[in-house]
Every structure is written in C-alpha cells, then in structure tokens.
Amino acid sequence: MNGPNTMYRMRPIIKLREELVLPKCMYRMKNIQQAYVNNRVDRQLSHEIEPSSISEQVKKLLKCPLPEMAALENRQEAILAQLADLKNQITVLRAQLKQPHICTVREEADISTNKTCNILQNGVIHDIVINASPRYPPYSIAALRRLWSDGLKLGVRCHIHSSILELPKNLDKFLCLVSNSDQERSSLLNITLVWKDVGADTQLVVSPMKHITMKGEVNILRYLSRLGPPKFNYELDNDPATSARLDGVLDACYSLARCRTVKEQQSLIRTLNSYLGKSQFMAGGESISVADVAVWSVLRQIDIQPQRDLSSNMNKWLHDCSQLLGIDL
C-alpha cells in the first residue's frame, strides 16, 4: 500500500487467521503507530486517492504532522537551547580567566600524550601482539624504538611460533636491535613479536574481544603512530593535504611488499621516488616521519640492489635514514 509502485507486489507467504488470540498474562501495549495508521485510514477514506509516489506521501506526512513528531522536535529544540546556554557560560568563564579562545596545537598534543600514557598505564592496552613472518621482518618496529626512544618506550619480547621450525640466522642482528632487556621494566607499551608464517601480511592483535586483526606493516605503523609521541604522529603534525600524501606513500609500501613481478616492483619504486622528489624526507620537511620508516623498512624486505634500482636522491635518502636511526643492517 505504502510502498513505491515501481516494485513487484508479493503475495503473503503465510496467511494469518483473521483474529489472533494473544495471551493475556502480559500488559497490553498501545500500538505506537496506531495514530499514523488511523490518520492514513482516515485520509484514504476521505480522499480515496492513492498517493502515486513516495515524495507525495512524504509531503502529505509533513502537511499533517503527528503529535509524536512535534514532541520530539520540541525536545531537540530544548536540548539545543541548553547547549547554547552552556557554551555561553564557558565563553564567559574563559573571558574571566583570560584564556585564549583557541587552544594551540602544542597543547592539544600534550593532552594526547598524557592520554596515551594514561591509556597505557591504566592497563587498557596491556600488550599488543605483532605476528610477523621471518621472511618479512618488521624493521619499522626497530626504527620506531630508536626514533621514539624516550617519547614512548617500547618493550619488545620475541617468541617463535611452533609453526616455524627454525629462525633464519640473518635475523640475529634484528633480534638484538629490537629486544633490549633493560627496557622491559620501564616500557610503556609492550609488544609481543611472534615469528609466524603469515607472509607479507604482518598482523597486529590488540584485543581479540574488541578489535579485529590488523593486517599489513603500514597499517600497524598507522596504529602505532597514533599511540606514539605526537611529534611523530603524521596526522597531527601535518596539514590534511600532506597527511593524505603520506597515506599514499604508506599504501605504496603496502603494495610493494606484495609485488609478484619485477615490473610491478619497479613501477612502485618509481612512484615512491616521485613522492620523495628532491626533498630530504618523504613528508617534504627536514624531519623524518612514519612514512620514511615505512619505506625504509619495506626496501629492506624486498630483494633489490639500492645502487641499481633506486635514484640517486633515493639512495641518499636511504643513507640518511639509516644514519638517523642508527641502524645499519
């Protein structure tokens, strides 16, 4: 009846008896749509014209508003008025205390640091698990540990999953870099790094109850950069345009780790190259960012020869990153 006429009409699948006998052991509720139904029936009786389209029906509905709708509208108006009042009060208070009208970014950042610390200290996040394949070691974790140092101490513990029979020897150096026993006690964020055969899909598990598993090293970096010191949070530190550009860089890294052909690989490296351009770091400025860490990490995982496959500026950039992070693998 009230559906659009452009659709097929379906026959009811089951026919109900005329009168349904309802149990009387519970309170009877008023049908909340009764008013609307009655209204419509009345209207139909009086006009006998079927509404030809939805828009007409809506128009009709708006013409004769229901009492419930009016009540709801009134309530909303009241709440909005209350909010406006509160806002006024705060403005007055602020004027009295001589506070600037707009908080600076710096202050917001401090708040977020405190919040992060609170989250971590109060044990909302006890420990996050990163599953990585020995074929794709998450060098970025080692880089973040160096980069953040005191901003947010990372305590990394490594485990080998039973599906991995033996860890390749070339990971020894990485393990030394990533795990440091004296930091374990004072660390704010504990990372359990499990070597497991997950391919290029490095996984992040925060809490199986509330989060789904995150896949891909760059996505883990995005997650960590929100938790980490605000200085390194690319979304806080840059204007939206730069943030979006850096997201592009991160996505290119994601694809690069999953390349199947050399051709694909080369085209992605060219993309990264153009992102870098002539600037010193990926973000364009003079400071290293999460995007640099991501590219630096993925270039170590894939099979390339820097001298041959990368441009000269890229080579210089790679060298600078390694120097800055103090990691030479």
Partner: peptide
C-alpha cells in the same frame, strides 16, 4: 582469549 590473541 589467549589463543585468540597470542595463538598459543
């Protein structure tokens, strides 16, 4: 829970 998180 531990199996879901740490897979052990």
């Amino acid at each position: 829970l531990i199996r879901a998180k740490y897979d052990t």
